[in-house]
Design a protein around this nucleic acid. Structure first.
Length: 919
RNA sequence: GGGGGAUUAGCUCAGUUGGUUAGAGCGUUUGCAUGACACGCAAGAGGUCACUGGUUCGAACCCAGUAUCUCCCACCA
């Protein structure tokens, strides 16, 4: 027997321990089953558990457990991400407190500290996830800086390098002056700024006293100007092209050039050309053979080229100071407020500095194949609309800057021969192992973008590229993975890159070398794919990507640490139980829409668990005789001859529910699936069937309860694994863990139910609905006359055609549910308050009859029916409707019309009878 | 500038192929210690489905436009 009250904390702890002890989650390769793999989106070791993780991992757990119930061999691969820049910042902050920088302690000591930090904090988040009940295979846990995974990352680099996809180049990149590293385009977000547009006067050398006016938001870069540019056909300036003007600060003569890219209608139509600090200017500089003068250093401060007044100043300070200087020296025509967009570093939150820098770049491989995988439906996105976003990105893809000037991460596996020209690739050594004579080489100082290592997550976690490790992990069996659950915010960062990496690298097994030959030096060439559809199919890292919504607070704001609006998931689990949190979150959540978080829904989740618990208490109080161990055994206890209409109706309803549930789950509509179960369990089973069965509990009825409860536990299990496990074991439904039980499909269940003769169950359900209508109406009448719901009241019923038989069949239940001993049939129309329904007219006996009130109510009721009848008639008089609408719809309206007319006539009769009293 | 999403009850949201009189939870009103459950039961109130047109026998749903909110991409210096 279960405890009196449901308390999640203890039982959740108990079951998770037992699950682990019994090694349930460890992958098992079994030839007769198909595999089902999920790859966890590895949380950052620096991250703290937030609601997004909870949603994400609940979904994955639901999918895994559901796949398990369908007899698939499941494997959920957990792990963590080393979080390059983020962890480095954390350790540097610690150092700063001691008044040190990373350079003070040196690379090796720094890395020791970083590892320490990770080892102490990095697994917290996985431990927290266990509280949620996640069924990850913990024997397979992987970290992106594990030695084997690191080798995989380096292999990835080396292979791409050898094939020409990775190159070193001098290009404009996004420089973060705080983190002091290059960033990829994806790590920069644009933010609207209230800036000032400075109109600066550049005196024309050849025409002293005359000025060209340049509008700029970045006056601090004036010292880097090497020209001013105008549009070649701009009448205003045509005569000046070829002349020169004076650079206003660090005064020097610079040419006036013409270039097509200049926008005539922006500002004054004159652009200052600063090749070192703006990519467009750089291109102009290239076209006109101009020099490049850098005035801002890597730390965001102005250097010697900026002149002694400004040297050493921070760029933002310099902007104000230069403005001041221009104003003071009559070099400023005017300034105006201006709103523009500025790129910010995602991590450090400061404006990035466009900078010319030598970095490692990746030309993406298999771009066309990656598009094809989606277009041909080999990989499916849910919701589908994200496919468009993905395609758009791939259509405009640019080379990826993969080097970072950090220490924490995978160090670039490139060595330069000491004492010779570093720029010459002849003097490079690129390999996973490094050169055999390391004393003669220096390794590249930089590390790889963390996302570069994430790109091979599906491969590295399964042992790639080490054939032996792949064997051990079951690569051939478990790859490709099935469903990836992640947020749409990392569709470029991660999803797209994993697809390309998988497609490119996975030339697999025996014919690997042959396949590799087929990969060209450059797949960027328009629209051509070199992989066959079958080959793509085999290489893709996953078949479905489920994009969750982003969880927002009740005001619609993104949850963030700085706003402090993110609730602590562990606190919530303490309050509502992991089951309650899981169920609540799923019910409010994942239709792919953003989710406004509401704690109420979690409370609702817990309430359902409590209700489930209590329904078992009801069942168990009525004795536990009989065999519960299997569906067959339970069905065997049901006496088919003893089945009443309500029994067959609830079994039929269960069957319908299971089928609807399957459809919702197959379509990844989890909130709908939950809702379907919820409605069946609460409204049909608890509110109706349990109540109606109370008046006739016997062995058959108890067996029906067992059957329904058993299926409910199985159906609810993926969502609320803990409480269902507890109830399953306690009630003796099985000796194994619920995890190991298969769920009967709707079709299978239908076969089992054949002996119940559920053919035409629709009519049975309809009959029950008639009875429910009667009950609700009668209760409503009691309430209307201020009679408490459990008071014995006299009812009279005048039945319509089939009503009499139905009432007779259910009379015991009706009396029980109405709490009355007096429910009598009558033939005549009575002078009592009445309501009319499909089955007939129901009268309630009351001493204090309010005739006026009743008549008013009846008249309103009649008017309402008249309106409905009018609508019905109109439809039936419309020939187009009769011809074009499907027969059953027309039939429905006909039936409704006659029903409404019947009701109206009955009401009119009652009204007349009541009127007689007065006269 | 380009693209996506949203707009349904006081609040949060369902409503998947267009078909009777639009649903749920929370909140709210009223009644109830009735055999599991007051984290409950019962009965109610509450909606111009953003707006304007169109298609259709029939529109919350399809189409066009408008408004408001929101996200992503691009970046005009």
């Amino acid at each position: 027997m279960i405890e009196v009250s449901y308390s999640p904390a203890d039982l959740e702890r108990k079951w998770y321990e037992k699950w682990l002890e019994n090694d349930l989650f460890t992958r098992k390769i079994s030839k007769e089953k198909s595999s089902y793999t999920i790859l966890i989106p590895p949380p950052n070791v620096t991250g703290i558990l937030h609601m997004g993780h909870i949603l994400n991992n609940t979904l994955q757990d639901v999918l895994i457990r559901r796949a398990r119930q369908k007899n698939r061999s499941t494997f959920w691969i957990p792990g963590t991400d080393h979080a390059g820049i983020s962890l480095q910042i954390k350790v540097e902050k610690e150092l700063a407190k001691e008044g040190k920088t990373r350079r003070d302690i040196g690379r090796e000591t720094f890395l020791e500290r970083a590892k320490n930090w990770r080892d102490h904090n990095g697994n917290i988040i996985l431990e927290q996830l266990k509280k949620l009940g996640v069924s990850c295979d913990w024997s397979a846990v992987k970290h992106t800086l594990d030695p084997d995974y690191s080798r995989a990352v380096l292999s990835f680099f080396v292979e791409l390098y050898r094939q020409g996809y990775i190159y070193k180049g001098l290009k404009f990149i996004n420089w973060c002056p705080v983190s002091m590293t290059a960033l990829s385009d994806e790590e920069v977000f644009m933010q609207q700024q209230n800036s000032i547009l400075y109109y600066v006067k550049y005196e024309i050398v050849e025409r002293p006293g005359e000025f060209l006016v340049v509008a700029t938001t970045r006056p601090e870069t004036i010292m880097g100007d090497v020209a001013v540019a105008v549009h070649p056909s701009d009448e205003r300036y045509r005569s000046l092209i070829g002349l020169h003007c004076w650079r206003p600060i660090v005064r020097e003569s610079i040419p006036i050039v013409a270039d097509e890219v200049i926008l005539r209608d922006f500002g004054t139509g004159v652009l200052k050309v600063t090749p070192a600090h703006d990519p467009i200017d750089f291109e102009i500089g290239q076209r006109h053979g101009l020099a490049t003068i850098s005035v801002i250093d890597r730390d965001g401060r102005l250097n010697a080229s900026a002149g002694p007044e400004f040297q050493g100043m921070d760029r933002m300070e310099a902007r104000r100071e230069v403005g001041e200087y221009l104003r003071a020296n009559d070099l400023l025509l005017r300034e105006e407020a201006y709103v523009n967009n500025v790129g910010f570093s995602e991590r450090a939150g400061v404006p990035i500095e466009p900078m010319l820098s030598e970095q490692w770049f990746l030309k993406y491989p298999c771009v066309e194949e990656a598009k094809m995988a989606i277009r041909k439906g080999m990989i499916h996105f849910r919701p589908e609309r994200w496919e468009k976003t993905y395609m758009h990105w791939l259509d405009h893809i640019k080379d990826w800057c993969i080097s970072r000037q950090l220490w924490w991460g995978h160090r670039i596996p490139v060595w330069y021969r000491k004492g010779v020209d570093r720029k010459d690739p002849q003097n490079w050594h690129v390999s996973v192992e490094g050169p055999g004579d390391p004393e003669n080489w220096e390794q590249d100082e930089d590390v790889l973008d963390t996302w570069f290592s994430s790109a091979i997550w599906p491969l590295g976690t399964l042992g790639w590229p080490d054939r032996e490790a792949m064997e051990r992990m079951g690569f051939d069996y478990f790859y490709p993975t099935a469903d990836l659950v992640t947020g749409p915010d990392i569709i470029f960062f991660w999803v797209a890159r994993m697809i390309m990496a998988g497609l490119h690298l996975l030339d697999g097994g025996e014919n690997s070398s042959q396949n590799r030959k087929n990969i060209p030096q450059n797949t960027g060439s328009q629209g051509k794919t070199t992989l066959s559809v079958e080959e793509i199919q085999r290489r893709i890292p996953f078949r479905n990507v489920y994009f969750t919504g982003i969880i927002r607070d009740h005001l619609g704001r993104k949850m963030s640490k700085s706003l402090g609006n993110s609730p602590d998931p562990l606190e919530l689990i303490g309050k509502y139980g992991a089951d309650g949190v899981r169920l609540g979150l799923l019910s409010m959540a994942p239709n792919g829409q953003d989710i406004l978080f509401s704690e109420d829904r979690l409370a609702q989740g817990k309430r359902l668990c409590t209700k489930l618990w209590n329904s078992f208490r009801f069942r168990q109080r009525n004795g536990m005789e009989g065999d519960h161990h299997s569906l067959e055994a339970i069905i065997g206890r049901i006496g088919v001859g003893a089945l009443e209409v309500e029994d067959r109706a609830i079994l039929g309803k269960l069957l319908i529910t299971v089928k609807e549930f399957e459809k919702a789950m197959d379509g990844y509509e989890f909130n709908r699936a939950v809702q379907i179960l919820y409605a069946f369990f609460w409204n049909h089973y608890c509110d109706w069937y349990i109540e109606i069965s109370k008046s006739r509990i016997d062995a058959t009825v108890l067996a029906i309860h067992d059957l329904i409860l058993r299926q409910l536990l199985l159906l609810f299990h993926p969502f609320i694994p803990f409480v269902t496990e507890e109830l399953w074991q306690d009630h003796g439904f099985g000796t194994k863990f619920l995890w190991d039980e298969l769920l009967e499909s709707g079709d299978q269940l239908e076969k089992y139910f054949e002996k119940f003769n559920l053919k035409g169950v629709g009519r049975l359900i309809e009959e029950i609905e008639f009875v429910q209508e009667l009950i609700v109406t009668a209760r409503g009448m009691k309430a209307q006359y201020g009679l408490s719901s459990n008071r014995d009241v006299q009812f009279y019923f005048k039945a319509e055609a089939e009503g009499e038989a139905i009432i007779r069949r259910h009379i015991k239940s009706i009396k029980h549910l109405l709490g009355t001993k007096h429910f009598e049939q009558t033939d005549g129309t009575l002078q009592l308050p009445a309501n009319v329904m499909a089955l007939g007219s129901l009268y309630i006996h009351t001493a204090n009859l309010d005739i006026e009130g009743e008549r008013k109510r009846l008249r309103q009721e009649i008017e309402h029916l008249e309106r409905l009848i009018e609508i019905n008639r109109k439809k039936l008089h419309n020939e187009n409707f009769l011809v074009r609408a499907p027969g059953e719809v027309v039939e429905g309206v006909r039936r409704l019309l006659s029903e409404n007319i019947g009701k109206k006539e009955n009401l009119e009769g009652i009204l007349m009878k009541l009127s007689l009293i007065e006269s």
